[in-house]
Each structure stands twice: as structure tokens, then as C-alpha cells.
Design a protein around this nucleic acid. Structure first.
Length: 256
DNA sequence: ATGGTAGCCTTGCTA
């Protein structure tokens, strides 16, 4: 079972690239973030023609997440449990066979010292609570998405330049570690130990061409999922295209 | 060198 995650930065603009990724990578489940699209405007018909089912929550201009899958999901959860009154579309979770998958668009949190950063930390606390609930089921799950967290300095092209960025703050990183310490596994680091491997390159200042990026998109595996992971990698090809998203897909293969 | 680029329905905000 192949599970992938991709922040598309507008699903409407990225539809041709999205269809190409489905055709070439053939994921069983693809988690999307920053769809920037109301559910009624989501290109479900085009994806259905490509053989995929869609679940999505979204809003105009900002946020929005989706689960694109070969088979329809079960037990869909819309919105992060515990974040009552949160109007931002950032969490979608469902079951696909024996594996539960969440598409996560964690708040960016910039700039520091504002309610945006407080919101990010509060959101991470609730995500950890949700992970604890899921762990009690003792079955495989994958928390996939744009975490807006560089776990370590080796995940940043210029750690000094990002010292005051919400993606690299000690408070952000400690909450990410708290999530990991529940027993989750960073799928990418099971197979790749080398530093400076990225999933995001800013549109500005030629960051892509200089390979100056950030590793902020992660696939976190439950223990039962980690037992079955046989491969994980970042697919840089979509980022190299014309009119690309600033993120590129990350995927893993579970032997289930 | 406090800009630069991309997307949205906005003339600024978010990333």
C-alpha cells in the first residue's frame, strides 16, 4: 500500500501535475494540503476519471486538505478532534482497509509573538492528543502532511537565517518531538540518514535551483505501520516542472 | 539587499 503526501498550493492550478503524479506514482492514498478550494469546486470529476475517490474539506483562498484514494474511505473525520470552533480546514482522517490515514496541514505559525504562533502550538497539542487516541487502537496509521516543522537544523538549508522562524523554534520542535516520543516513526529517516534533503523550496530567490529548501512534509508512522514500512522517498520531479507547487510529494510503501 | 514569487478575488494576506 503506497501512501503519499503533497502540499499542492492550489489544487485547481496544480490539477495537470496532480493527474500526472497519480498516473506515474499510482499511490493508493494521496494526502493533499493547501488545496485552497471549497469542496463544491474541488476537481472531483477529473480525479474520478483518473480512477480516484476524493474526500475534502476546504475554504476560499487558504488552507484546505484532501484524501485522494483508489478505494472509498471509511469512518471519515473532518477537522482535528478537540479543536472545536476551529474554522481552518487543516485535518482530514479516514480508514483505508486496515490503515488509517490523516492529511494534516499544520499551522505555519509565523510571525513569532503573535496569535498565529500560539495557535500553532495549541494545534500541535491537540494533534498529540489525537495520536494518543489512535495509538490505543493498536493498529497501523499514518499521520501525513505539511507539518511546517523542520525537526532539526540538518533539515534547513540555512539554520541561522531561520533562527527566528516558527518552523524552527524550540517550542515547535519540542512539540514535534513530544509527538514522536509517543512512539511514532519518521518514515523518511528509516531509509535516509543524509542531511539536507528537502520537500519544500521557496519560490523566491532561486531556492529550487540552488537546492536551498526545508524538510517540513513528513509521514509519521504508528508502531504497527512502522513494522510494515518497506520504502520511503521524496519525489523531486514535480517540483522541477513549470508552474510547480513550492512543495514536492513524499511517499512510503507499507507491506499490507 | 527587509526584496524576492505565487495564489487568491485582494488591491493586502498568507506562505
Amino acid at each position: 500500500m503506497k501512501i503519499a503526501s503533497w502540499n499542492v498550493n492550489s489544487v485547481k492550478v496544480r490539477l495537470p501535475h496532480l493527474l500526472a503524479v497519480l498516473e506515474e506514482a499510482k499511490p493508493d492514498v494521496l494526502c493533499l494540503q493547501e488545496t485552497k478550494c471549497l469542496p463544491g469546486d474541488f476537481p472531483s470529476l477529473e480525479l474520478k476519471a483518473a480512477g480516484y475517490h476524493c474526500e475534502t474539506i476546504g475554504q476560499r483562498s487558504y488552507n484546505g486538505v484532501a484524501l485522494i484514494s483508489k478505494t472509498p474511505p471509511s469512518e471519515l473525520i473532518q477537522g482535528l478532534p478537540g479543536m472545536a470552533g476551529d474554522e481552518q480546514a487543516r485535518y482530514l482522517e479516514a480508514g483505508f482497509g486496515k490503515v488509517r490515514v490523516a492529511s494534516i496541514y499544520l499551522p505555519n505559525g509565523n510571525p513569532l509573538g503573535t496569535d498565529k504562533f500560539t495557535y500553532k502550538l495549541a494545534w500541535m497539542e491537540q494533534l498529540a492528543l489525537r495520536a494518543r487516541e489512535l495509538l490505543r487502537l493498536e493498529s497501523p496509521f499514518v499521520l501525513a502532511g505539511d507539518y511546517n516543522i523542520c525537526p532539526a537544523d540538518e533539515d534547513v538549508y540555512d539554520p541561522v537565517a531561520f533562527r527566528d522562524d516558527a518552523l524552527c523554534q524550540p517550542e515547535s520542535r519540542s512539540r514535534f518531538r513530544a509527538l514522536m516520543y509517543l512512539g511514532l516513526t519518521d518514515a523518511y529517516r528509516v531509509f535516509h540518514r543524509e542531511p539536507h534533503r528537502y520537500t519544500f523550496w521557496d519560490y523566491q530567490a532561486g531556492r529550487w535551483h540552488r537546492d536551498e529548501g526545508l524538510r517540513i512534509d513528513h509521514l509519521l508512522l504508528s508502531p504497527h505501520a512502522a513494522d510494515r514500512v518497506v520504502a520511503c522517498d521524496i519525489d523531486k520531479r514535480p517540483r522541477a516542472k513549470e508552474r510547480a507547487s513550492d512543495h514536492t510529494p513524499i511517499w512510503c510503501e507499507l507491506a499490507v
